[in-house]
């Protein structure tokens, strides 16, 4: 055997970068797509693990803000009716929890967000796939979907309440609308730009339709899908609060509007803090999903 088996070192730079001029007219322009692969190095750099010092660094600012808050409320820098003390907020939390209201509100808000997010993400993924893969569907659907996306979120509320009433349906639908568009936009865009070389390769090896989609196109856009999901989740929380502010009898948005009406600034702060914690927690869940998916497909 003449060939030496190991080329690992040294010639990694060759790939992609020196692709040479495209030999045929219809290939022109595709060469540039491939060169994006060129810079990758053979040696995998070990990624620094999320170690304890990163947690420490991340905790510095919240702790500092807490101290500042405490000082501002106790030393009289800000009037008490504008800024409750941290203890007052904790007291409000304990009070609402003992009455069972806090968990109920958190539960119903989470349910609305997750349900709406799931529906919106699935519909967005499906629409994005159709528009991103078919030029016909792109021409047919994209302008209409673009116009629907341009409608400000709150403009849907009166219509949804009229059609679906004040119940859960209208709220979940509004959240779903909020979650739909980020997923649709990122997925359709990414599918349109899957490396044409890889798609042609799939075709050359007998893949088409659903098998081409699941073997080549979907895995290629996994990173885009994940960033779409993250945006969609943030939008879902945004639309949830909009829905609950405008007509509900429970939920964190209701707690906000009710506290504002009653002048309960401590509960107002509590609602905002709970929204921050829940938003971050659900985003972290998507982060876990992202790491799993990228380990498999990245």
């Amino acid at each position: 055997m003449a060939a030496s088996p190991d080329f690992v070192t040294g010639d990694s730079v060759v790939r992609g970068g020196i692709a040479g001029p495209p030999a045929d007219p219809h290939v022109t322009g595709e060469a540039a797509v491939h060169s994006s692969e060129a810079g990758t190095s053979v040696v995998e750099r070990p990624r620094p693990r999320r170690s304890s010092w990163r947690w420490l660094i991340g905790a510095i600012l919240p702790v500092a803000l807490l101290v500042l808050w405490w000082a501002a409320s106790h030393l009289g820098w800000v009037a008490a009716f504008k800024l409750p003390s941290p203890e007052a907020v904790i007291q409000a939390a304990i009070d609402l929890a003992q009455r069972g209201v806090l968990w109920e509100y958190i539960g119903i808000s989470l349910q609305r967000v997750l349900l709406g997010f799931a529906i919106g993400a699935i519909v967005g993924l499906a629409l994005g796939a159709i528009v991103g893969l078919s030029r016909l569907a792109d021409g047919f659907l994209a302008p209409t979907i673009g116009a629907a996306r341009a409608v400000p979120s709150l403009a849907w509320v009166p219509l949804l309440i009229l059609y679906l009433g004040f119940g859960e349906d209208s709220k979940v639908t509004l959240v779903a609308i909020g979650a739909l568009f980020p997923v649709y936009t990122t997925v359709a865009g990414a599918l349109r730009h899957v490396d044409p070389h890889l798609v042609e390769l799939g075709r050359a090896y007998g893949l088409h339709g659903v098998r081409l989609l699941t073997t080549v196109q979907l895995p290629a856009v996994i990173p885009a899908i994940i960033s779409g999901l993250r945006l969609a989740l943030a939008q879902a929380w945004l639309f949830l609060v909009a829905a609950e502010l405008l007509g509900s009898t429970m939920g964190l948005g209701f707690l906000l509007i009710e506290s504002q009406n009653n002048g309960r600034i401590d509960r107002l702060f509590l609602a905002i803090l709970v929204l921050a914690v829940l938003g971050k927690a659900t985003d972290a869940l998507v982060g876990v999903l992202e790491r799993q998916l990228l380990k498999r497909w990245g």
Partner: peptide, 12 residues
């Protein structure tokens, strides 16, 4: 069966 100028391997 075709082999192209670029390897066209699926990176994932």
């Amino acid at each position: 069966a075709v082999a192209f100028q670029e390897p066209r391997l699926l990176p994932w």
